[in-house]
Design a protein around this nucleic acid. Sequence first.
DNA 1: AATCATTTTGCAATCGTTTGCAAACAAGCG
DNA 2: CGCTTGTTTGCAAACGATTGCAAAATGATT
Lengths: 346, 346
Amino acid sequence: MIEDEKLEIRPKAPRAVRTLTDLANIAGVSAGTVSRALAGNSLVNTKTRDRIQALAREYGFQPNQMASKLRRQKTGVIGVIIPLGHDRRQQISDSFFMTLLGHLADELTEKGYDLMLRRVVPERDEDWLDRFIGSGMIDGVIVIGQSNQFERIEEVADGYLPMVVWGNHQEGQRHCVVGADNRLGGRLATERLIAAGATRIAFLGDTAPFEFAARFAGAQDVASRLGASLRAVSTHLSPEQTRKEIAGFLSRHHTEIDGIFAASDSIAFAAMQELRRLRIAVPDAIKLVGFDDLPIASQTIPPLTTIHQDIMAGAQGLVELLLRRLKGEATESLVLPPRLVVRGTA
Amino acid sequence: MIEDEKLEIRPKAPRAVRTLTDLANIAGVSAGTVSRALAGNSLVNTKTRDRIQALAREYGFQPNQMASKLRRQKTGVIGVIIPLGHDRRQQISDSFFMTLLGHLADELTEKGYDLMLRRVVPERDEDWLDRFIGSGMIDGVIVIGQSNQFERIEEVADGYLPMVVWGNHQEGQRHCVVGADNRLGGRLATERLIAAGATRIAFLGDTAPFEFAARFAGAQDVASRLGASLRAVSTHLSPEQTRKEIAGFLSRHHTEIDGIFAASDSIAFAAMQELRRLRIAVPDAIKLVGFDDLPIASQTIPPLTTIHQDIMAGAQGLVELLLRRLKGEATESLVLPPRLVVRGTA
DNA sequence: AATCATTTTGCAATCGTTTGCAAACAAGCG
DNA sequence: CGCTTGTTTGCAAACGATTGCAAAATGATT
């Protein structure tokens, strides 16, 4: 009889027990005790702790996070911010970043943190990074991609420790970064192109972002050393735009080249498609190497030769370094080795 | 001279002015007034408002969000939660969900909300949804994908208004959902296969998730009506696993079919690759239709015939409905029309 | 039974904003 | 000049959890 009543009281009722005090009243103790009990604090008697925890479960009580965070001055939330280029669509569909984000979510969850995602267009908002950090909503921040904001990030890094960035490592930089050795990757790609017989190479992709610039620099290292010619064909912004630029370049200049180093797999795919439209044989007439090794890279025809980046290791590195920085440690950057994957296009 | 000093005071100092009261002291007013001034409240004199806002900018002051949220009892944060199947990797790299997420981030940002991302494995955590909602950190929640949690979501929907789900619409369901008409999509795909000459069709994909089940149901509608045979080849979980299962099925049974309806483009890609390995001509020997119309679908060889879903419209719909629900409106579900895109595989 | 050491508990201050209410002030009018 | 309207401001009470400190309860020991 009593139990029946109990069962009927709970459902639908507008959550009668919403605060520590509510639960404390029910349990016949003080709010402080409830707080300690739920925190598993050893200061509270084992028996009352269990009783209170049971009660909390029964009434579906969860302490208000906002109040908790305010009081403890930490949020348990890590911010992940993606700076976009001028065109906001630039990286939205970039599967590389999106995959990285997925792994980050998993890693952070595992460590007990929540993830707050923000995408910003730095050009439109000077203070994009400071604002996120100063918002008081996050304990630390992971920046995905340096875009063209290297300087801004450096400035912030001087005064703000818990920040880790995915991107390229520059000699002597002050912010902690995790990323592949893009320059080495560029070298590997170009060496492969030349080994496959290419001598007149085009680099396809926007050279403004640091990651891409480093890939191009690596290509330059090798090209000049091995006596191949190299030209940069800078593409811009949105995928459609990029595709048009690639199409334009290829239709006009394809006879002048016999190798393409694409700054990313996405760009490589676009190039492949255009080459097919122009009935230019890959790899016979033009060799092609990409960068990233997205899952689909192995599924194109011919499968794409590319530079592999270990995304999961990257995500793990980002999180681990950030957690150490949250503890006050100053950490080194982490540079991951890229790996050439030879498939069918070069 | 004075200005020089001003410049030197600010940098590096551990943010001397961190609270409303700090700023209030500087401005010579009370904290309440500063609060109102920064909120652009009309109750405060225009002149003092401007003065305070200038001061705030000068000192880089940002009110503490945690305190603000606690006091106002709303967070300005929308939770986005992705329930994963048994295998956590299942959907992580699913570019469809990831792209949807990107668009959601944009839409929410535009409306002034922040986005908190959480990925969960419902099997491991019974209360995944309640816990997120009850955490007090979010004003509303968007669930991406029903996975196999339809019932759980229904239950929650009864007591919690500000929730919108991406997924499939079932007759008479109680939670508000946005998604393509999967059944119709399944019909379109199958009709196309049959029109292209297929009579013995295999459906490739896990039929447990509601979206996929509906696609299969659509296929059944058409197959039985038009006299084609249809068998479901249920794949499971992780991409590698899926690939193996597909390979196994095709190598053993490819002679028994002449058409494949893949539950998603990703699955279609895997099938294509396997068919190529087996030297089975597409679409000559076997016709193939996918679902989603991912960007790469147009770039395979031959380009993939598939069912197009408008992801951006989906994201906009989710956000718009959620905002209306936050205002207390009860909203209808939104079913988006899928569209057959005929390319080279059927 | 009294004293002391040790757990457990309650009290009350605190985190930093927001906001209802009332006080202070200015302005308009007879 | 006094009185009635408006504007602007300040005061102080929330919001709900955490935690140092002291009080109370318990147990151990003589």
